[in-house]
């Protein structure tokens, strides 16, 4: 029987955000937006969902006088991402 895919990660934009964050220590909102080619509103909603699931932490601060949001993957997020990729591979094989 195939493992169930994590519904939090099984969404295009959330998966893209998690893929980027899995590779870096942290990333700013502007970088995530540029890399995922998404709108600020949509990205913000998806980041909130990932944060609510405990997969990422979101830190709001300032860079000079400009507001700056930084996202970081949590150990739970890394574990969930690993499990998701493993499940995907089982589906394919």
């Amino acid at each position: 029987m195939f493992p169930k895919l994590d519904p939090i990660l099984h969404s295009e934009l959330r998966l893209a955000v998690m893929s980027i964050l899995a590779e870096v220590e942290s990333a700013e909102f502007s970088y995530l937006r540029k890399q995922t080619d998404s709108t600020a509103g949509n990205l913000s909603v998806q980041i909130d969902k990932l944060s609510a699931a405990g997969y990422i932490t979101v830190e709001k601060g300032f860079k000079g006088k400009m507001p700056c949001t930084t996202c970081k993957i949590t150990p739970e997020g890394i574990e969930a991402f690993k499990n998701y990729v493993t499940a995907l591979k089982e589906y394919i094989s």
């Binding site: 099984h10 969404s11 295009e12 949509n42 998701y84 995907l88």
Partner: peptide, 15 residues
């Protein structure tokens, strides 16, 4: 990227 798009396993891995 589209939040609501249904992805296959292959599409997810490609993404």
């Amino acid at each position: 990227t589209n939040e609501n798009k249904e992805m296959t396993a292959q599409e997810s891995l490609s993404l």
